[in-house]
Design a protein around this nucleic acid. Structure first.
Lengths: 145, 145
DNA sequence: CCTCCTGTAATTTTTAGATTTACACCTATT
DNA sequence: AATAGGTGTAAATCTAAAAATTACAGGAGG
């Protein structure tokens, strides 16, 4: 129940594709070396990103390319694509309160009201950050190294 | 890495104390029945809430009472009290990127910038909801049952 | 002094993530 | 048409975090 490391891995890979995609064949093997993550995990993430049209992958021969302008790739979109119901996993609710207790019977609905607000706020927050922002940050860091 | 069920358990217990604390001795055993959660877990949560001054517990003989006005108990405070660094666990980052790769070397800093914004937004969001709001919601639900 | 409760440590169970293994299938190259 | 280097996915295993359980020392009040 959290925003998983898969999201950070995806961002890492997208930066890599943006930076090196023109000059290099970006395979799951290369990204595995760069991220320190198993190539199968990379491929699974890519499978989702591909379905959403964020990247395309040359079948057979291999290699990923960006398929979409950077400013259309928000963190929300990435998270949602990788883990469609990530938002419902964000905040846990205890699952078996007593239905004999007035509070137990209503706790789910009570919390739902507040938690929904929090979830909406978070989504908004995630929508405000795009790969364009992130790559700008990256270039800034590179210059000041 | 998430906002754990401990938070929802704490809220449940606080409602219980508010509603029944005057007329009943609220023990971890009773709350265990109402929440469906192990009494030891309840006691652990209470241990934190007590340190933060949200509740007090009669030693020896038992029973929890509220120690603080409802509108001063925000969800942020509850989460923070129960799990002091919950916020840093909210968003995962892959831990062993290659330092030989310019992206791998910088990914942590790059993400930090964006993730920090998201975390701040979330805290703000959690601060906006108080036990007062939640109890109002609860009473509203009770009426319309 | 006995009963009901808290506080907390230690262990075990459960669950979710992540990794690994395995293999079918695709395509460019020679 | 054979092969080398990719992808796509399923299944099994490993790992780590969360939760439950067990256990027990100690306080307060009848």
């Amino acid at each position: 129940m959290h925003i998983s490391t898969k999201c950070s891995i995806a961002v890492h890979c997208l930066i890599f594709i943006y930076e090196y995609g023109n000059t290099t064949k970006v395979t799951s093997e290369i990204l595995s070396l760069s991220t320190g993550i198993n190539p199968v995990t990379i491929r699974n993430i890519f499978s989702s990103l591909k379905k959403d049209g964020i990247i395309s992958i040359k079948f057979g021969t291999g290699g990923a390319t960006l398929n979409c302008p950077l400013n259309e790739i928000t963190l929300y979109r990435i998270c949602k694509t990788i883990e469609p119901n990530f938002i419902s996993k964000l905040i846990g609710i205890h699952t078996s309160p007593s239905l004999l207790c007035p509070i137990g019977k209503n706790i789910n609905n009570v919390l739902d009201n507040s938690y929904q607000k929090i979830k909406n706020d978070l989504c908004e927050s995630l929508r405000n950050i795009t790969m364009e922002n992130i790559i700008t940050d990256y270039h800034y860091l590179l210059q000041n190294e």
